[in-house]
Simulated assay, not measured.
Amino acid sequence: MQLVYRRILLKLSGEALMGDDSYGINTGVLDFVAGEIKEVVEAGVEVGLVIGAGNIFRGVAGASKGMDRATADNMGMLATVMNSLAMQDALERIGVDTRVQSAIPMQSICEPYIRRRAVRHLEKGRTVIFAAGTGNPYFTTDSAGVLRALEINADVIIKATKVDGVYDCDPVKHAEAVKYERLTYEDVLTRGLRVMDAAGIALAKEDRKPILVMNMKVPGNIKKAVFGEPVGTVISC
């Protein structure tokens, strides 16, 4: 088989790292995700990774309880750095050379985000984890994931979720939910489908960057995706 996507941006939610726990980082999930990434790196794929922080702190939730939104979002961005360092550790323990680059400078624990340096790391076969979102409040890690994908010229954005694609309604609550195989950016925006925030979808649309929504919990799904096998839902023009 031949690779369809040679450089990917993998967007992983913070909640995914909790596993069945109610909070924090489940090391079993961390090791599983690291193993899935290693499999595609060994196949020759260059991997960029953006991780959310919902398992530790979500800025919107803090703001809804009276906290200043900018302060809450800054806390959320710092929480993504914690998740990124944990993922780096899991990857390097199994032999995957990894760099963490933070949009908020903190040189004692990770590199500052520099686009050209990130691209060079990818070209050398290193996995790059982009931490601290965009470095600005009011932007989600979904938007950060699309932005980084555009900056590194990734072939596709893979959004890893707990379901096997995009449905017309919540498949967990509604047994009659219908899965979409393909959608356009306009479909997502006009139908109000909860794939990622509208800013991220609009940004991907402007650059015609495809988004693949798939189930991260199924072993081998990322590898299937990069080799072009039908997995999840594709969002494109």
Rank of each mutant, 00 (worst) to 15 (best):
A70W: 07
S64V: 01
M67C: 09
M67E: 12
R58C: 04
R148G: 08
Q101V: 13
T141F: 06
V33G: 01
G48V: 13
G133N: 04
E151T: 02
S64P: 09
A132N: 10
A72G: 05
G52I: 06
R116C: 07
F139P: 02
G48W: 10
E36I: 04
S102H: 03
F32M: 09
A53D: 13
Q88W: 05
G62W: 01
A90C: 01
A61S: 13
A70V: 15
G59I: 00
D155P: 08
S102W: 02
T141S: 03
Q101G: 00
R116V: 15
V156S: 07
A160P: 09
A34Q: 02
A144Y: 11
V128I: 06
R99D: 05
A160G: 12
L49Y: 03
A53N: 12
G24R: 04
A72Y: 14
R148H: 09
A149P: 05
I37H: 02
R116Q: 15
S143E: 09
Q107E: 14
A63S: 14
S22I: 15
P105K: 13
D142K: 04
V29C: 00
R120C: 11
E123Q: 13
T80I: 05
F139I: 09
A132I: 00
H121E: 01
F57D: 05
D31Q: 09
I152Y: 12
T127K: 11
K159E: 03
I129A: 09
Q107A: 12
D20L: 15
I157R: 06
A149I: 06
S143T: 15
A34D: 07
C110S: 11
A144G: 04
E39F: 00
A90L: 00
R126S: 13
S22Q: 12
A144D: 06
E36K: 08
G66K: 01
E46K: 15
